[in-house]
Write a protein that binds this DNA or RNA. Structure first.
Length: 452
RNA sequence: GGCGACGUAGCCAAGUGGUUAAGGCAGGGGUCUGCAAAACCCUGAUCGGGGGUUCGAAUCCCCCCGUCGCCUCCA
């Protein structure tokens, strides 16, 4: 499989360094509800993981929660609740949404606040080696102590100086230096440390957690493109300076943006559609189709029409995979050819649009065979299997099931009317169910109904 | 200013030197159906604009137009 490595800016053949693939994906800072942009990112890395496992790799996947951070503190103080409570609330919500999106859980979900000893140990090591220094209870990373700083994002320290932010009261040696540890301020949660009470800076938690759970070198580190700088750049600096081992990460993967109209969808712009809303309107498969019909490194633009299109497309695949075939001879759908097409597309830097095109062609082929009355178990099994690699369940949303007996009753009533050629009344029943979101389909084997 | 991305049918979106430019959604025509729905069949683009390289370019080079992202909040 070839993957685009942000570090080399090229496609590279992927091979893990050991007998398992070590993946670290940057998780959320749980200070607000998650939106479709987050869904996009985690769907993409879920597909990466599923595909690696499909290829037979053993994967160890770690995803963190940055549950201590400026915005989290501000938000918690504004609401008058402890930071930990606010974080836990959004983490639980996020977990549930990930579950509903059918995202395979990471093997470990460490939280920054539960890794303070590792973080302190790492900062101490950096200070000892001269890569970090203490100033007023803060500790900063000395960017100039690492000559290759900027290698991921393609910038050099000198050209960054003009734009670097220095907060009043900070005692940085260089404006580009960044905080590893922040001395406690009034009203902030804090932990004891050799530099006095304080809390970790933004980037160190990921270095600490990835080191503790995956070791000095990761195979794959993923996240959104906005994390390239400064977050991932700083992680590299810290981790490589601390361990003395290069590289920290062998393959850097970054997904493109979800945009809203022409702008990036982000919390700070306030133009977000929450995951909850997406799930309710379009279903998990619909949201996944929306995301996966575009290549992961390209920007993806939100529109109701595009999501609706994803929902309809998911329905098409679902019906193809689930409606029963006939009793005739087995269909001669070339499933191996479709499988090869799928694998070839996925091998090419996770080209999910191409992979999906193969699934849609398989679906058409299979539908044609069903129309001919052939047995279609084999192509359906293949469709299910490959769709699962993309995390698609192809299952009907499990809602309104309590209403099923009543719907069945109405369907029987309508069929009595049809048998009596009372079509006007029969159509009224169908239209009424339609308004309630139930679609009826009459076929040779009787009437079936579905949502949507 | 520095670094980067993008512009392909009504919409979303693959394809990055060579068969008729994937696929999805929407639309039109047809088959099936009591009528529908679903499904199937048929149906649409010469690839932002201009110039160049080449036997041959959506794909490479140059110029222009337009859009967006990052540059220490952000998946």
């Amino acid at each position: 499989m070839r993957l685009y490595n942000t570090m080399s800016r090229r496609l590279e053949e992927f091979a893990p360094s050991g007998d398992e693939v070590k993946i670290y994906v940057c998780g959320i800072t749980p200070y607000d509800r998650a939106h479709l942009g987050h869904a996009m990112s985690y769907i993409i890395f879920d597909v990466l993981r599923r595909y690696l496992e499909f290829l037979g790799f053993r994967v160890k996947h770690v995803q963190n929660y940055t549950d201590i951070e400026d915005k989290l503190i501000m938000r918690a103080n504004a609401q008058g609740v402890p930071v930990s409570e606010l974080a836990t609330r959004y983490i639980e919500e996020f977990d549930e949404e990930m579950r509903e999106l059918n995202i395979t859980p990471a093997h470990l979900f460490p939280r920054a606040t539960q890794e303070i000893p590792t973080i302190i140990e790492m900062i101490e090591g950096l200070v000892e080696k001269g890569h970090a220094y203490q100033a007023n209870g803060d500790v900063y990373f000395r960017v100039r102590s690492k000559s290759d700083y900027g290698k991921l994002s393609g910038r050099d320290v000198d050209s960054m100086r003009a734009g670097a932010r220095v907060e009043p009261g900070e005692r940085k040696e260089d404006p580009a230096d960044f905080a590893l540890w922040k001395g406690a301020k009034e009203g902030e949660p804090s932990w004891e440390s050799p530099w006095g009470p304080g809390r970790p800076g933004w980037h160190i938690e990921c270095s600490a957690m990835s080191f503790r759970y995956l070791g000095e070198t990761l195979d794959i580190h993923g996240g959104g493109q906005d994390l390239i700088f400064p977050h991932h750049e700083n992680e590299i600096a810290q981790s490589e300076a601390y361990t003395g081992t290069q590289p920290f990460v062998r393959y850097w993967l970054h997904n493109g943006w979800l945009t809203f109209g022409e702008e990036k969808m982000s919390k700070s712009l306030g133009n977000i559609i929450t995951i909850r809303e997406g799930l309710e309107k379009y279903g998990a498969d619909g949201v996944r189709l929306f995301v996966l019909t575009s290549h992961y490194r390209s920007p993806l633009s939100y529109s109701e029409e595009a999501l609706e299109s994803g929902k309809r497309a998911a329905e098409r695949l679902r019906l193809a995979a689930t409606l029963p075939g006939g009793n005739g001879p087995p269909a001669d759908v070339p499933v191996e050819a479709y499988r090869e097409r799928f694998v070839e597309a996925m091998d090419d830097d996770l080209n999910t649009p191409e992979a999906l095109a193969a699934l849609f062609d398989l679906a058409r082929d299979l539908n044609r065979a069903r129309d001919e009355g052939r047995a279609i178990e084999e192509p359906q099994a293949t469709l299910h299997e490959l769709a699962a690699v993309l995390g698609l369940t192809l299952r009907e949303p499990e809602t309104a099931m309590g209403a099923a007996p009543f719907i069945d009753l109405l369907v029987r009533l309508r069929n009595d009317l049809r048998a009596a050629k009372q079509f006007e009344q029969a159509d009224r029943v169908r239209a009424g169910l339609g308004e309630l979101g139930i679609t009826l389909e009459d076929g040779p084997e009787g009437t079936r109904w579905r949502r949507g």
